[in-house]
Amino acid sequence: MHGVVRPVDLDLSYLGTGADPWGGVRAAFRATAELRREDFAMNYNQVVQAGIAAIGTTLRVGLDIQAVQGNMLPGA
């Protein structure tokens, strides 16, 4: 972010597995992370006229992930 690369710890949750409509087996996961802007050289101290911060100091990232079990990639 903003030209800075850092490792980020993800809070990963396993949501389960199940059959999909195409005969495959899928596993579902959800991952979240909270990033601090200052860790990425983004110091946004801009304040709107009422004295409220226009942009927060943290950023929340959420990922919804599905993995399909198989020996080959689709279409390969």
Rank of each mutant, 00 (worst) to 15 (best):
P21H: 12
L73Y: 09
V68R: 15
Q69P: 02
A27L: 12
D9A: 14
Q66L: 14
M42V: 14
W22A: 14
V68H: 10
M42I: 02
G70F: 10
A28S: 12
I55Q: 12
A53W: 00
E34P: 00
L12I: 13
G16I: 12
D9V: 06
T58N: 10
T32K: 11
V25Y: 08
Q49G: 05
G3C: 09
V4C: 03
V25H: 07
T58D: 10
G24S: 04
M42A: 11
R60K: 15
V48A: 09
G51S: 07
A33F: 10
M72W: 09
G3I: 01
R36G: 09
P7H: 03
P74T: 08
G70V: 01
H2D: 07
T32R: 13
L15H: 01
A54V: 05
E38C: 08
I65Q: 02
F40D: 05
R6I: 08
A31I: 02
D20Q: 09
T58F: 04
L15A: 08
V8W: 09
G62Y: 02
G70S: 11
M1F: 04
R30G: 01
L63H: 04
D64R: 01
Y14T: 08
D20M: 11
G56C: 06
G62W: 03
V8G: 04
G75I: 00
P74F: 10
L63F: 02
I52A: 14
Q66M: 08
D9S: 12
A33M: 10
Q66N: 05
Q69K: 12
G3H: 14
